[in-house]
Amino acid sequence: MARMSYAQALNEAHRIAMHDDPRVFVLGEDIGVYGGIYRVTKGLQAEFGEQRVLDTPISEIAITGAAVGAALVGSRPILEIGFVDFVGTCWDQVFNQAAKFSYMTDGRASVPLVIRMACGAGLGYGVHHSQSLEAWFTHVPGLKVVMPATPADAKGLLLAAIDDPNPVIFLEHKFLYEVKDEVPDGRYTVPLGKAWMAREGADVTIVSWSGAVPWALKAAEQAAAEGIECEVLDLRSLVPLDEDAIVASVEKTGRLIVCHEACTTGGFGAEVIARVVTRAFDFLDAEPLRVAAPDIPVPNSLPLEAVYLGTRERLLEAVRGIVS
């Protein structure tokens, strides 16, 4: 065990993967010499050389397509696109190319690719650098979608994503990069599709992921002081989804709140609720709630951004409401 930040844990996962598997290489803008905006790839070029840690031109279509193409012939690329907001510039290569090859070719072609992108608000970066777009990816069969909430998961999930033979969208919350915690040493993987019971409780299930997990834990703590016991489930990956863990928890508590940072409409919260209503309707003692952002772009000034992030404060109210 060592205490390190989410960004350092991701850096260590890269280092282990590159050391263990010569097929792994890393590409992106400003990731080599500079080490990436969030320092996740820091030192990798010095250690593994320019052939395996490539600084690329600002050519998102070319680098995404090239990463997919390299994966088709047996490489294991890790592509950094600095912000998930930028994925629009290369979206076709992601959802029409990377996501489809296995299906199109009856499994004869595969794309073992990880695309890392930073998501989330909280730093006052404005409309083009703060969005949470995970739901887009979940709507494309063929992509896996992973969103770690802790340093230990960041490392273990990234190593699992690199091992996975499919294209994995790996979304890192930029507010979490500096968060520090204990991280196990050496190689280990956290399986995709296995939720983490972050807190046990009998009264309310709060399902969350990524940057919303700390909010859920905080709300659970505050609710506990009021005598309400919340169970907090961190999904870790949205695709594959640990539906069984969600259903098991709701069967126990009878109450479901899904809390995510992304906008409400079309958010993945709707999917979670639909699954629970389909499978565990009879166990529900109250109508399920989603606590999520208003349907607005993410504004730049911190007081305005706080409106977008109001979910944090509304979560505790929702917990009180659902038990009353």
Partner: peptide, 8 residues
């Protein structure tokens, strides 16, 4: 700073 409603 702009009032919170401006965000909406």
């Amino acid at each position: 700073y702009a009032a919170p409603e401006v965000a909406l």
